[in-house]
Design a binder for these strands. Sequence first.
DNA 1: CGGGGTGTGTTACATTGTAACGAAATACGG
DNA 2: CCGTATTTCGTTACAATGTAACACACCCCG
Lengths: 161, 161
Amino acid sequence: MAGSGKAAHSHDHQHCIREALTSAERVCAERGARLTPLRKRVLELIWDSHEAIKAYELLESLGALGESTKPPTVYRALEFLLEQGLIHRIESENAYVGCRHPEEAHDYQLLICDGCRHVEEVEVPGVGAALKDQASQLGFRVHQKTVEIHGLCAQCVANPR
Amino acid sequence: MAGSGKAAHSHDHQHCIREALTSAERVCAERGARLTPLRKRVLELIWDSHEAIKAYELLESLGALGESTKPPTVYRALEFLLEQGLIHRIESENAYVGCRHPEEAHDYQLLICDGCRHVEEVEVPGVGAALKDQASQLGFRVHQKTVEIHGLCAQCVANPR
DNA sequence: CGGGGTGTGTTACATTGTAACGAAATACGG
DNA sequence: CCGTATTTCGTTACAATGTAACACACCCCG
Ligand SMILES: [Zn+2]
Ligand SMILES: [Zn+2]
Ligand SMILES: [Zn+2]
Ligand SMILES: [Zn+2]
């Protein structure tokens, strides 16, 4: 078992990408939101992996594709994708990651590996409701919940670099 | 009821400040950590209110007190205060707030009012454990949890500006 | 007194994010 | 199809947030 070494995160990622893009097309069509070529390219770049990606990394990648390369370009695309719930912002990293369930609003929590930057989106039963209930008891009206767990994923625990 | 208008957040804040500072002195003394004049001044500035305060606001206030006024000064003080658990960083705001329970490690969640910037630190029973358990099941080793709830506090819901 | 460690001052820079304005593309009523 | 309103995009310029690196001061201890 010592050197087995293959990626615990390994999976058919082309499938993830296809699914993310077709979901995006669908929800935007349903809502009359315009998933323009630029926005779609940014979404594709974000879905290039399950890792957190930063705005300026996206900017650089866009440049390599012959696109504009000015910050507002990518920030506007990110703003659109966030509004449509197609991506999530990772506040503690100033970074972004594709959303796994863009079809509908949902509570979610992010497990962020500080070893490999892999981000896992989970919904721990009860957590969202417990936070909401506590807030309500205090008369607090919730607009947004940010739950980000940092640490090491199973792969990085087993295989520290 | 229309114009009753007194602060729901009102309380003896001098008491909060005194308690925060004496706690800080105590925990630092116990640990052999040095709460220098500069670090203490920064902590006082943070405890000036229960609102989130930004590094450059602290910098400005320090300047008004005749202190240095260069970013590293305040960022180093913040780093120390964070390490000692005397303050919490609000990732979604790039801001800081005093910790209510600096004596020991604890799970916490922050209720951040987008109306008045008031920040309430709570510990919803079970939430920390639920997150930890879910992570463990996935083989994820937790280092840090960030839970930040944005919205409107009771006061701002009742009295929208 | 002489080092070694810690804290602070300072310069310079890196990273992250926005305001503002005009041009282009698109949607839409007629 | 045409004219007009709206949205999106390109571009400049800048604001806000955060750090690396190095010099110096201070303090403790031998
Ligand atoms: Zn995948
Ligand atoms: Zn999601
Ligand atoms: Zn108080
Ligand atoms: Zn706390």
